[in-house]
Simulated assay, not measured.
Amino acid sequence: MIWKKHFFKETCCRCVASDTETQNEVLEKRGKLKKRRKKNENKRVIVSNLSFGCTKWKENPNRYYDSNEIKTTKYSILTFFPKNLYEQLHRFANIYFVVIALLNFVPVVNAFQPEVSLIPICVIMAMTAIKDAWEDCRRYKLDREINHMGCYVYSRKDRAYVEKCWKDVRVGDFVQLRCNETIPADILLLYSSDQNGICHLETANLDGETNLKQRRVVRGFSRQNTSFEPEFFQNTIICEMPNNDLNKFKGYMEQSNHERIGFNIESLLLRGCTIRNTEVAIGIVIYA
């Protein structure tokens, strides 16, 4: 009987130990998965759009990214009146005059005719609404002008660079830029007509500086004797998510043989900058 008790105790202890070990392993795996998910959430994976035509667009991972169209307007035709009225009634001065006008409709406290008390606040709110509508109309025209600016994007169907509007540029497109042209989106530089793979930029629209800055082609693409062929690009680009820091950017490019090539802000062409002293520059859109 004593032997049986010892045997059962040992087996029970072993079962408990094995259960705790499996639980620890499961928890470790879950922790690793959570860390991987957090890392993946802070990364952006970009592939070439040329591998996905119109029929395979649903398989393209770039379809989840925002378009290049900008919209700075606050109102639309349907939402102007309620939204503008809501914003004006959040101003203390307007609330004060509205309350005074409403009190005049109470016979006990009214000082003069109730209809007359509504005239000042209605005039003020009407003039403010006209001003807001005029400013929003100007923003709409400026947005439309920028969205319909032209740039050259590579088309697999035409096997050449075709002109498209800025609003039609998507993440993963290959854009060709020439001297004195404005950059339509944030682009990773893959080719430059310069022998050393350098592209000169003017960033006056971003930081006000008129001196030219140099951007270099990603390592491995700078020594090209022939022009860049977008259809042969099969690499996957992994970089950080968009942020407000203009001087910080890092990522890497994974080739088909799993070799990684790193890059930083020195290879990024920011939207709004102007190409200077460079005949041709080609890159892939990273942020739109």
Rank of each mutant, 00 (worst) to 15 (best):
222 S>D: 15
254 E>F: 02
252 Y>D: 06
213 K>C: 00
241 M>V: 13
210 T>H: 13
200 H>A: 02
217 V>C: 05
200 H>Y: 14
222 S>N: 05
261 I>Q: 10
200 H>T: 01
229 E>R: 15
219 R>C: 14
199 C>R: 04
210 T>K: 13
236 T>K: 10
234 Q>A: 10
230 P>D: 02
204 A>F: 07
237 I>S: 04
239 C>R: 00
254 E>R: 15
202 E>Q: 07
205 N>R: 15
257 N>E: 12
207 D>M: 05
207 D>L: 01
230 P>W: 02
206 L>D: 08
235 N>K: 07
206 L>M: 09
207 D>N: 14
226 T>K: 10
239 C>T: 13
194 D>Q: 03
252 Y>P: 09
256 S>Y: 07
221 F>V: 00
230 P>M: 06
202 E>H: 04
220 G>F: 06
237 I>N: 04
194 D>T: 02
232 F>T: 12
200 H>E: 07
211 N>V: 12
207 D>I: 10
221 F>Y: 15
203 T>C: 12
255 Q>T: 13
214 Q>L: 06
221 F>M: 04
260 R>D: 04
258 H>Q: 15
248 K>S: 10
240 E>Q: 06
240 E>L: 01
221 F>G: 01
211 N>R: 15
229 E>Y: 12
214 Q>K: 14
249 F>G: 05
253 M>V: 13
221 F>P: 01
250 K>S: 13
237 I>P: 08
207 D>H: 04
239 C>K: 00
250 K>G: 11
207 D>S: 11
243 N>K: 05
238 I>Y: 14
193 S>C: 04
198 I>G: 00
244 N>F: 05
246 L>K: 08
231 E>W: 00
207 D>E: 09
256 S>K: 14
245 D>R: 01
261 I>H: 06
221 F>W: 08
226 T>V: 13
243 N>V: 06
259 E>T: 13
246 L>I: 11
214 Q>F: 05
239 C>G: 03
195 Q>I: 08
201 L>W: 00
197 G>I: 05
219 R>S: 15
237 I>A: 03
203 T>Q: 09
255 Q>C: 10
213 K>D: 07
229 E>G: 03
221 F>H: 01
226 T>Y: 10
226 T>D: 11
208 G>N: 05
205 N>C: 14
249 F>V: 08
239 C>F: 02
229 E>H: 15
221 F>I: 04
231 E>H: 09
236 T>I: 09
248 K>A: 14
260 R>E: 10
195 Q>E: 11
260 R>W: 01
241 M>H: 06
238 I>A: 01
203 T>A: 13
263 F>V: 07
246 L>F: 05
251 G>W: 01
249 F>H: 13
195 Q>H: 07
193 S>R: 06
236 T>V: 12
198 I>S: 00
245 D>A: 06
253 M>E: 05
215 R>E: 00
219 R>H: 12
256 S>G: 01
193 S>L: 02
261 I>E: 05
196 N>H: 08
250 K>M: 07
247 N>L: 07
220 G>S: 02
217 V>N: 03
214 Q>E: 15
254 E>I: 12
238 I>H: 10
248 K>L: 11
261 I>F: 14
246 L>T: 09
254 E>Y: 02
234 Q>N: 15
230 P>G: 07
